[in-house]
Amino acid sequence: MNSASDLRRLLFLIALLLAIVATAILVGVTFGASGAGLRTLFGSDPTARRIVMGIRLPRVLLAALEGAALAVAGLTFQTLLRNPLADPFILGVSGGAASGAAVGIALGIARRHPAAIPLLSFAGACGATAAVFLLARRRRGVDPIRLILSGLVLNSFFSAIILVSLSLSPNSDLTVAFRWMIGNLAGASWNDVIVLAVSLAVALVVLVWIANDLRLFSFGEEDASGRGVAVERVKLAGYATASLLTGAAVAVSGIIGFVGLLVPHLVRMAWRRDYRHLLPLSALAGAALVVTSDVVSRTIAPPLELPIGALTAFLGVPFFLLLLRRET
């Protein structure tokens, strides 16, 4: 066993996942309620073109970015907290992000400055990360069960904030609140794609920068510190980045839960290695999962569309229970 064969295997898995993501994107762009087939993709019909370029392509790309962002956020939370059950949704960080956006909408900030929504989501995500961390902290590190319970309580609190602020907002419409609380990719725009792509790019730069430090967290913070890791700085950068990813992901599509829980575990089943391997693999596998789920949610009962957050919950909840059984 040496690093050269490791690297070959990593590159092979990356290539395989890229191919899966590309296929999923192609399928996602091809199939839809308004007709399917490659003809719509390469044909000269202007309506079909508009549907593909203006509606399906941004939506499918947004799904890919969403999956990558949530999977990487989940992986990073799991690594920093040393808790395999951590996920942006379970920890309440997604809820915090959605609350930030909902408060912004209620106060009318969103109408005057649409660009404020991602910033408010990010602020909400950071606040929720800090809150769940402080609630779960013990003298010696973070208690895993307290962490999950704190996330549960925070989620109820944030749901209340979302419902209250959106029902008090001018021309209140509870379907808007519903859209924030259970993720939805319908109506994706190129603007959304750009917001999430830029956030993901920034986050990946930071995470690649600290990847060699993060992998040393697997034996605890004291152990990492003993290996020469500047623990406090890496934690700050890691939590901020995971919050940024969650905030941006929620800002463009509402809360899509369990992706951050499912994907890193599925990747670990294929290859139990450290953070440096899991980072690119989780990003790609997350993209593949959410694009595929989106295609399923659009085509399972046309012309109706399932909210994608419901679909990921159907997948994620049994998985969570399975993990809980194994861990405790």
């Binding site: 066993m1 690093s3 490791d6 690297l7 040393r82 808790n83 395999p84 690649v208 920068w209 060699n212 992998r215 040393l216 697997s218 034996f219 605890g220 004291e222 152990d223 003993g226 290996r227 020469g228 890791v229 670990r268 139990r272 290695r273 450290d274 440096r276």
Partner: peptide, 30 residues
């Protein structure tokens, strides 16, 4: 070496031992 280093995910012994080389690695090196 701390008192009870417990990995949270399954890990092979060789990967544990080679991680002891971490202080000798550059930021992006394997």
């Amino acid at each position: 070496l701390p008192q009870n280093p417990e990995p949270v995910v399954p890990i092979r012994a060789i990967d544990v031992v080679v991680s002891g080389r971490a202080p000798w690695l550059g930021r992006f090196s394997w």
